[in-house]
């Protein structure tokens, strides 16, 4: 059980796949339009259950609980060998590579 007052992320379907805007490409029409929001749980809830949260601006939003105390995981990525070559290329072109002191 997730306690009332916990900071959670919720998701809600805004438009079902059959109700998407007409001008959309087919691949987008096939899927629903989803919205995600974060807020403090207004009642005890279970994961994946529908609950109301109070957002940081004080709005009440209803949706399916999908993450408890959500955090950011984005980073600087993996090693990209090509990038290492770019600096070598530029320095060599301007200053002549290894001879440059």
């Amino acid at each position: 059980m997730i306690k009332k007052g916990t900071w959670v992320k919720i998701q809600d379907t805004i438009l079902e796949s059959g109700h998407r805007a007409p001008q959309l490409p087919e691949d987008t029409k096939k899927v629903p339009l989803i919205m995600w929001a974060k807020g403090f749980l207004q009642e005890d809830a279970e994961m994946n259950s529908v609950a109301t949260v109070k957002t940081i601006t004080g709005r009440l939003v209803k949706g399916q609980v999908m993450e408890v105390e959500p955090s950011y995981k984005h980073d600087f990525g993996d090693f990209v060998p090509e990038l290492l070559q770019v600096g070598i290329m530029g320095r060599k072109a301007l200053w002549g590579g290894e001879d440059h002191e």
Partner: peptide
């Protein structure tokens, strides 16, 4: 990842961030 970073930055300044999946109907939201 770039948009996720923007969300983080907005939240860092105290904003509420509402995210959607792909589609111009974001305008409706």
């Amino acid at each position: 990842p770039e948009i996720i970073e923007k969300a983080r930055k907005c939240e860092a300044y105290g904003a509420e961030v509402i995210q959607t999946s792909v589609g111009p109907e974001l305008f409706y939201v």
